[in-house]
Structures are given as structure tokens and as C-alpha cells.
Amino acid sequence: MKRICGLQCAGTVALLLTVTGEGAAADRLHGRAIAQRWCSECHVVAPGQVRGSDTVPTFAQIGESERFDERSLAAFLATPHHSRMPNLSLTRAEIADLVAYIKAK
């Protein structure tokens, strides 16, 4: 009986992760769309972008930075620390997508 319950619970968890997207791989294309919509006003988020602030790092610089690995960048985006950076209230999946895009630069 315990084994059946364990299998059912594991199956339920796997189904929930699939439905909520938490178990899915990060989507860099969706990350690019998020970056272009929410970040490109201040950051240069893509090659060929002609405007952005020169007082903030480009996404290429952030992606290459040793200070920000995937985990620390995700934590930063989940709880923005900079007063000039808006609280975007991104989901974990959106943060993963954005991090994947930034780190791919």
C-alpha cells in the first residue's frame, strides 16, 4: 500500500511540475521577449540595440560577469536590490527564461 501511495504521489508531483512549467527547461526566446519588453529601456539587451543607458551594464556584460552565475542572477531578479530597477514581479519560470537569455549572450 505504501508503495502505491508513493508512486501516486510521485506521479502527482511530476504532473504538477509539468503543468506549472517549473520542471520545464528555461526558454531563451521567451527570456529575450521579457528583456525587450521590460529591460531594454535601460539595458542594452540585444546586439544592434541602439539605445540604453550608459550608466547600467549591458546584458552581454552581465552574462559574462563572474559576479553573476545563474543562481545569483536569479536571486537578484527575484528580489531587486537597486532603487532604480523596478520590481517586475516575475514568476520563477520567467526568471529562469530571462537568466537563460542573459547567460547565453
Rank of each mutant, 00 (worst) to 15 (best):
V56P: 00
G48F: 08
E94K: 06
F59A: 02
T12D: 10
D54I: 04
H81V: 12
F59G: 05
Q8T: 14
N87K: 15
L7H: 07
E41A: 13
L90C: 04
L90M: 11
K105W: 05
D27T: 01
A24D: 09
G63I: 05
L73C: 07
V19P: 07
G21W: 00
A26P: 02
R84H: 15
Y101A: 02
A93F: 01
R92D: 14
F76K: 08
I62K: 05
L98P: 04
L88F: 15
I102Q: 01
A33K: 11
R71S: 13
T91I: 06
G23Y: 08
R28G: 05
S53P: 00
H30Q: 13
L98I: 06
G6Q: 12
E22V: 13
L29E: 15
V45M: 00
T20W: 05
C9M: 15
C9H: 08
F76D: 05
T18I: 14
S72C: 10
I4S: 04
L73H: 09
K2C: 11
V19K: 11
A24C: 03
G52L: 07
L29D: 15
A96D: 12
A33W: 00
W38V: 08
I34W: 02
L7R: 09
A96I: 00
V56Q: 02
T55S: 11
N87M: 13
N87H: 14
I34Y: 02
K2M: 13
L17P: 03
R92W: 11
C39S: 03
L73G: 09
M85Y: 06
L88A: 11
V19D: 09
G6V: 08
R71W: 12
Q61G: 10
S72M: 10
L16K: 06
I95N: 10
W38S: 11
S65L: 03
D69C: 01
I34N: 05
A10T: 06
E94Q: 15
A74R: 07
W38H: 11
T79Y: 03
F76C: 02
E22A: 11
L16H: 02
A25D: 12
S53K: 09
Y101K: 01
H81F: 12
D27F: 01
E41V: 10
G31K: 02
F68D: 00
C9G: 00
D54N: 09
L7P: 01
A74L: 03
A60I: 02
Q61F: 09
M85G: 08
A26E: 07
A93V: 15
A78F: 07
A24G: 03
Q36I: 04
P57T: 04
E41K: 10
I102F: 00
I102C: 01
K105G: 06
K105I: 04
